[in-house]
């Protein structure tokens, strides 16, 4: 299974994503520059955190028009796995691959600390190694992670089981609607989340709860491709 880590000018979690893939599941992974126009050889695409294009205008607003984004949209349409983390989540909402938007944190502060998340949907490509309702410890680092969508969209998210992660009740760090920390598209092959699983892949980093996101992805891919399932 082959991974791409998209690199925009201003991405700063690209190396963490790359190393997380190497260290957790040992699959081939490449950095792919924002000018790339072909992602056909990749099975999963990681859109990493950072401050793409300086977050000018709005977070993700300019990155969304980078040449590589046409290919990310194409890959998503083909059913390939796309995971946007932090700034990557913002880019995916701007690109219309995920509904809603990320607003300024209600505290007006950049929040950088570990956060407890509830796995709301473990029936996804990205979360099949977690138990339903499991509480996991994944760090956050963002100033604009306050998820918002209108009532109609929220009803759809709930009806289709698209809320993947919530901040633990009473510990919402940014004011996001219904404590939402991560969502998927309707098909379930695109997920965006503000917390950073790639920063939680070893106890030395304070938590290894993020590891299973990567093993989930590999498992899902192997199941789809009839290969042996990773234990």
């Amino acid at each position: 299974m082959k991974f791409a880590v998209i690199v925009f000018p201003g991405s700063n979690c690209d190396i963490d994503c790359y190393k997380a893939v190497e260290d957790t599941i040992g699959q081939p992974v490449d950095y792919v520059w924002h000018t790339a126009t072909d992602l056909s050889s990749y099975d999963a695409i990681l859109v990493p955190g950072g401050f793409s294009y300086g977050d000018y205008l709005r977070c993700g607003a300019i990155a969304r028009f980078a040449p590589v984004m046409n290919e990310v949209i194409k890959a998503a349409e083909q059913g390939k796995f796309v995971l946007g983390i932090c700034n990557g989540f913002q880019v995916l909402t701007e690109a219309g691959l995920l509904p809603g938007a990320l607003l300024r944190n209600n505290s007006m502060k950049f929040r950088c600390h570990s956060a407890l998340l509830e796995v709301v949907n473990n029936n996804t490509v990205f979360t099949n190694q977690y138990s339903q309702g499991e509480i996991i410890d994944i760090p956050i680092a963002h100033g604009e992670g306050n998820y918002y969508c209108d009532d109609e969209t929220l009803a759809q998210l709930k009806a289709n089981n698209q809320i993947v992660f919530r901040y633990k009740a009473g510990a919402n760090p940014n004011g996001s609607l219904e404590d939402i920390a991560g969502i998927s598209n309707e098909r379930g092959n695109v997920v965006g989340m503000m917390p950073h699983p790639e920063r939680a892949v070893n106890q030395l980093l304070g938590s290894e709860d993020g590891k299973r996101m990567f093993t989930s992805i590999l498992n899902a891919w192997r199941e789809q491709h009839g290969a042996a399932v990773n234990g």
């Binding site: 607003a61 300019i62 909402t93 509904p99 938007a101 607003l103 918002y148 969508c149 209108d150």
Partner: peptide, 8 residues
């Protein structure tokens, strides 16, 4: 397309 995010 760019200057405003009409979602918000």
């Amino acid at each position: 397309k760019l200057l405003a995010n009409t979602v918000v």
